[in-house]
Design a protein around this nucleic acid. Structure first.
Length: 528
RNA sequence: GGCGCUAUCGUCUAGUGGUCAGGACAAGAGGUUUUCAACCUUUAAACCGGGGUUCGAUCCCCCGUAGCGCCGCCA
């Protein structure tokens, strides 16, 4: 295991998801590890859609998987919908098993011809009863080999009768050993496997056979996949041997577990990459987080971009034990990456959420924009619904900036900054009260604020000016506690018990609205 | 039930034949602060059990235990 890295020349790794559901976190992690491994050693990463089961496969899941991987920034060198091609996802050719039926027929026939496989005509009921019995007496539920030695004539006869059949592997008795790149030596006794079904028909392979054939045809050198496949590996090795094909290297990476320590699944909540995407997680955070489930560079560093991961990734540092998915850490990581983001980019990312919440609406017809916006609109233009005013994304950028360090996921942005967009804030008098302040104190504070703020020139409307003017007032207003003056200000401007600071909000709001909101606060108090 | 894999703070993990067993998230306390964040300081928190090997085991070996995975004419 020591000289691992030296042997990895031009590896070909792959991910082979079946389009029977949305892109799962676990699949994404497998994809990532295969991607990192192949890119690190100058090899190729291949995406293959494993749709051998047409009953469960759907085109929309193919799209979901592709979209999810692209979003994460995991690109593939070969396979469906190459990133730099315009190829339609419906036409992948050889990278979709469903389109490879004829290729499989050749291999299945070979197995039959050289006596490595045989027809089995046993009924499902018969098999099921047998299985139940064996399980009940504590034996492995393997096939009893009834059809193993059927004469050629008998087989012909059954076939002529159109009796339904499957094809089974004639499993030899032997110890199957393979050297797993993360687990080391793994041994299995083939007797425990039995004569497994490998195909439902002459060109209808089951998963294990299809995977073996495809991996060979695509010249896969390294099979990196979840540990749940570790017990499939001996079966596949048997198939490689029966077909006389070269056996690739295997690496089984630890499973991702839910909080109850069972394999992460829907019942644990969100397992879909695209669901996280919709909730406003950043791909950088997802990648960083997922990479560290079962891998780490061997020291204390834990902020990693995908490119840094390629540099430092090694199968040697992969764990053997499963890891619990910790949503809190993901959330923290996401907040971290949001704070790192360039504000213009962050605003762009937030805008879809603001539109969805109904706070803003894109102005499609730029001709209707008022002259202040000039001929050439700078950035996007948006219509603010509630106040019926038009503004542009630079204005929204200012709002987002105030909340950049408070934001954990993008979908939180509407509820955080909605007060900027509203004509009238909805709150009760109690919100304006700081500690033991009575109504008279609050009114006094608001009046003082009104008076001071009115002195500021529109052209001089900046947070620093406000601070210089009001800061000293707050100091001496009551008991040397700034809250008596500043809390009502902030509450009146935001209508919330938690928000950004009053001066920064006021700056974005502008003088007119700031005074309006203070006046409104006074009315609310007066009504009590 | 059979077979396989695994085992360090609650979680992700580093690490070593002799360490105060380190970091991060979460939690607690404090600071900063009008609030909430962010930020800073700080506290608590772990080597599954039993046998060996050894002067000495968290680390190496064996056994046990527990957890998980797989046992399909699904993938």
């Amino acid at each position: 295991m020591d000289d691992l890295d030296l042997k990895f020349e031009n590896p070909r790794a792959r991910i082979a998801p079946s389009p029977t559901g949305t892109l799962h976190i676990g699949t994404a992690r497998s994809a990532l590890f295969n991607y990192l491994f192949s890119q690190k050693y100058g090899g190729k990463f291949i995406l293959r859609i494993e749709d051998t089961d047409p009953a469960r496969s759907e085109e929309k899941w193919v799209k979901d998987i592709i979209d999810g991987l692209k979003w994460l920034g995991i690109s593939w060198d070969e396979g469906p919908n190459l990133l730099n091609s315009q190829e339609d996802i419906g036409e992948f050719g050889p990278y979709r098993q469903g389109k490879r039926k004829n290729i499989y027929a050749k291999y299945i026939q070979k197995l039959l011809d050289n006596g490595k496989a045989y027809y089995c005509f046993c009924s499902i009921d018969e098999l099921e009863a047998q299985k139940q019995y064996l399980m009940s007496i504590g034996k492995p539920p393997i096939y009893n080999g009834k059809c193993r030695d059927l004469t050629k004539a008998k087989v012909e006869e059954y076939l002529k009768e159109k009796k339904s059949y499957v094809i089974r592997l004639k499993t030899p008795k032997e110890k199957i050993v393979f050297n797993d790149l993360v687990h080391g030596k793994v041994e299995t006794d083939s007797e425990l496997l039995g004569d497994m079904v490998i195909a439902k028909g002459l060109n209808d392979p089951l998963y294990n056979l299809a995977a073996v054939i495809d991996d060979f045809e695509m010249k896969i050198t390294h099979v990196i996949r979840g540990e749940d496949h570790i017990s499939n590996t001996p079966k596949q090795i048997l198939l490689y041997q029966a077909l006389d094909l070269p056996i690739p290297q295997f690496a089984h990476i630890p499973l991702i577990l839910g909080p109850d320590r069972s394999k992460l699944s829907k019942r644990h909540g969100a397992v879909s990459v695209n669901q996280y995407r919709e909730e406003g997680y950043l791909p950088e955070a997802m990648i960083n987080f997922i990479a560290f489930l079962g891998w780490n560079p061997g020291d204390d560093r834990e902020i990693y971009s995908i490119n840094q991961l390629i540099k430092d990734f090694s199968l040697k540092n992969c764990h053997k034990s499963a890891a619990v998915f910790n949503p809190q850490k993901l959330l923290w990581l996401n907040g971290f990456y949001i704070r790192q983001k360039n504000i213009t980019k962050l605003t762009e990312l937030c805008i879809p959420y603001l539109i969805k919440s109904g706070l803003i609406k894109e102005v499609k017809d730029t001709e209707k924009l008022p002259p202040v916006f000039g001929q050439e609109p700078v950035g996007h233009k948006y219509l603010i619904i509630e106040t019926k005013e038009i503004t542009d994304s630079l204005e929204i950028e200012k709002m987002v900036l105030l909340y950049q360090e408070r934001l954990k996921i993008l979908s939180e942005i509407p509820e955080l900054i909605d007060f900027f967009f509203k004509k009238e804030l909805d709150y009760t008098a109690g919100l304006l009260k700081w500690k033991d302040a009575g109504n008279d104190t609050i009114i006094k504070a608001l009046s003082l604020l009104e008076e001071k703020i009115s002195l500021i020139e529109e052209t001089n409307w900046r947070r620093q000016v406000l601070l210089d003017l009001i800061g000293p007032e707050a100091e001496k207003f009551k008991d040397g506690n700034r809250g008596y003056l500043l809390w009502p200000l902030r509450a009146a401007l935001s209508g919330k018990d938690a928000s950004a600071g009053p001066f920064e909000i006021a700056e974005v709001l502008g003088k007119e609205k700031t005074l309006e909101r203070i006046a409104r606060a006074k009315e609310i108090i007066a009504k009590t």
